[in-house]
Every structure is written in C-alpha cells, then in structure tokens.
Amino acid sequence: MNVTFDDKQPIFQQVAEIIEDDILNGTFRVDEQILSMAQLSQMLQINPATVVKGIGLLVNEGILYKKRGLGMFVAADAKLIIQNKRKDRFYKELLSNLLIEADKLGLTTEDIFHMIKQLRGE
C-alpha cells in the first residue's frame, strides 16, 4: 500500500480515514479483523502510536471494536456510521464552500447541476 499523507490534517486522522475507506469499499467487512497495529504501522511506515491513536478514534465512534487478545474488528453498523459522518461533513464543509464560491462567481443552482451532470457524464 502506497499512501501519501498530506499536511491538511493530522496523520492519525488520515489513518482512520484509510481504514474507513477500506470498510466502505469492502476490503474489511462486518465482524472481520482489520490489520494489526504493527502491520498498519509497518505498511504505512509511521509510528505505532500514531496508528493506535487513529484506531482509537474509530473505536470511540463505534466503527471498530476490540476482541481481547485477538485484535480489532469491524462493528456491525460501521459502514452506516461512516456514511452518515461523511455525508454530514460533505454537507457542512464541501457543499457550503461550493455554494460560497458559486455565489462569488454568480453561478445559479442550475449552473451547478449542469456542471455536476457533465462530470458524471449524464
């Protein structure tokens, strides 16, 4: 796995998002064990403490759960939790910023819909 971290957010948050992406795309399924912290640390070439912090976020959000002595596993509602969290962030951050920029450019809602349809090839 070749991952490039950016400076826009802490690495531990990016680690959590990488695991979330793997859950969303089906790499990890419900009640399936994810890679160990040591494996993730080695694969991502980062400090194990950073991985622990990223996984801790996911545990706190109910996305992962720990089986004592076995490791971390994907929770039953993980995919739904991630989708809801990301939809909320999409709405609050991306769409809000898009509309602010659209207003600056004088774009109408119809203009935006047209651009989206063009990008989707509709």
Rank of each mutant, 00 (worst) to 15 (best):
Asn25Arg: 12
Leu98Ala: 08
Leu119Ala: 03
Phe28Lys: 07
Gln13Trp: 04
Gln39Lys: 09
Ala16Asn: 10
Val51Tyr: 11
Ser41Gln: 11
Gln9Cys: 00
Val52Tyr: 15
Ile11Lys: 15
Met115Phe: 10
Met72Ser: 10
Asn97Asp: 14
Gln33Trp: 02
Asn2Gly: 11
Leu94Gly: 09
Ile63Tyr: 03
Gly106Tyr: 04
Ile82Val: 12
Glu20Arg: 14
Lys117Asp: 07
Lys53Asp: 07
Val51Lys: 10
Ile46His: 13
Glu17Ala: 05
Phe5Ile: 01
Lys66Ser: 08
Gly26Val: 00
Glu20Tyr: 07
Leu119Arg: 13
Arg120Ile: 00
Met37Val: 03
Asp21Gly: 07
Phe73Ile: 02
Leu107Val: 00
Leu57Lys: 15
Val30Ile: 06
Gly62Thr: 00
Ala38Ser: 14
Lys87Gly: 05
Lys67Gly: 02
Leu40Thr: 02
Glu110Cys: 00
Asn25Ile: 03
Glu122Ala: 02
Phe5Leu: 03
Gln45Ser: 11
Ala38Asp: 15
Tyr65Glu: 03
Ile23Lys: 06
Ile46Lys: 15
Ile55Ser: 05
Glu101Asp: 12
Gln39Ser: 13
Val30Ala: 09
Leu58Asp: 04
Glu20Asp: 10
Ile112Phe: 05
Val52Met: 12
Leu44Thr: 03
Ile55Gly: 04
Phe12Asn: 15
Ile81Pro: 13
Lys79Cys: 03
Lys53Cys: 00
Asp103Gln: 14
Lys53Ala: 02
Leu58Tyr: 04
Asn47Tyr: 12
